[in-house]
Design a binder for these strands. Structure first.
Length: 371
DNA sequence: ATAGGGATACTA
DNA sequence: TAGTATCCCTAT
């Protein structure tokens, strides 16, 4: 498969950087095989990069004093220090030996990894097939629901769309089925984003569990390293190479055993016996007999003609200065017309803006620039 | 996915 | 009410 889009590269890198079991050397190989991704485009990228470098430093030596020395060098690196969570700079414990300090640092590093925000891909997946699926369905228009149905069918070819069992999950449409959705129904993407934010902890936990439960054999697959060297100033590849020249060619750090959680974890691709399947059907011809015990019907689609939803949709979202400057920066970097790349490069800034919004706004800004 | 143009919300 | 910003639809 050929990856040429900067937006795709961003999604891949932003996802993989949070997978602690992917060796740092493999990660850097992946970076050079993809279009460059700016580390400034995502807090997850920045923090993930810093944590990876520290992880590599802590797995590189044998004796505690040397280990501590290397770790401190990474923590005080001006390129990386701003991106480390504050908890990593916690004061030493009463037992001030290097071994204790290293152990304490590793513990704090574990917490920092666990606190890494979910990736854009994971948030999107959660909205489609995870805990946010019901909310997504409730707020989707007809076109989006058609796409979701298609996604559901594709996914169910081999792996049914799975969502966790929820006590108050709707069993039927009508009645109190969408109480939760109605309570949250201030409508719109902003609301969805807030929902995603609230579920970040759960997603992060899920991510860590899946990472730590993944089979090592798959993760040790080596990627083909490209020899080409990029020249971009703020390229994430360059930052990694600058800060960790010693990690090239390393295999997976053995100290991962320090971070293993107890108990067996299920692979993401395995079926969860406690999960049930929600079907995005049209509510026609789905008798109870046709549905298995583990399948549930999502709320039926209703044409949203209520004045409230229409009014919310018509509420204009004024562009702020940050968004405008970021848009100009994006056009300068990715070129006019590459709205998808620009949006994906600045997911935080343009979270509530569509690619069409970017296009329209730039068209409007161009008018001012011409005057 | 993107461009173009019309519709609509908002402001002075 | 005209001008502008933003939204939305349609064609490519």
């Amino acid at each position: 498969m050929s990856i040429t889009s900067a937006a795709d590269a961003f999604l891949i890198v932003e996802f993989v950087i949070g997978n602690r079991l992917v060796p740092h050397s493999v990660f850097t190989s992946l970076l050079v095989s993809l279009p460059s991704v700016s580390p400034h485009s995502s807090p997850r990228l920045r923090t993930g990069l810093a944590l990876r470098v520290l992880d590599a430093a802590l797995s590189d030596c044998v004796d505690a004093p040397a280990l501590l020395h290397k770790a401190m060098a990474v923590l005080t690196d001006p390129h990386l220090a701003p991106y480390f969570p504050q908890r990593l700079f916690a004061p030493a414990t009463a037992d001030n030996t290097p071994a204790a300090a290293v152990a304490n640092l590793k513990r704090l590093l574990d917490v920092a990894w666990a606190s890494l925000p979910p990736s854009t891909l994971e948030i999107a997946a959660d909205r489609i097939a995870g805990a946010g699926a019901l909310h997504t369905w409730e707020n989707a228009d007809h076109a989006l629901r058609s796409k979701l149905r298609l996604l559901s069918k594709l996914a169910s070819t081999n792996h049914p769309v799975m969502v966790p069992e929820v006590d108050n999950a709707p069993q039927t449409h009508g009645g109190n089925d969408s109480v939760c959705a109605q309570e949250n129904d201030k409508t719109g993407l902003i609301k969805q984003n807030a929902e995603a934010d609230r579920s970040q902890e759960d997603i992060t936990r899920h991510q860590q569990e899946s990472v730590q439960g993944a089979p090592n054999a798959q993760l040790k697959e080596r990627l083909v390293t490209r020899t080409a060297v990029r020249g971009k100033d703020c390229d994430i590849t360059e930052q990694i190479e600058d800060t960790t020249p010693h990690v090239t060619g390393q295999s997976a750090p053995d100290d991962n055993k320090n971070h293993q959680v107890t108990g067996s974890k299920r692979n993401l691709m395995e079926r969860n016996p406690t999960a049930s399947t929600y079907e995005w059907g049209d509510g026609l011809g789905n008798s109870d007999a046709e549905r298995s015990a583990t399948k549930r019907q999502l709320p039926i689609f209703k044409n949203k003609t209520e004045p409230s939803s229409t009014a919310a949709q018509k509420t204009r979202k004024t562009w702020n200065e940050i968004q405008e400057k970021t848009l100009l920066e994006g056009v300068e970097k990715y070129g006019k017309g590459n709205w998808k790349d620009i949006k994906m490069a600045y997911p935080d800034v343009f979270a509530n803006r569509s690619t069409v919004d970017l296009k329209d706004k730039f068209k409007n800004m161009e008018r001012h620039m011409c005057v």
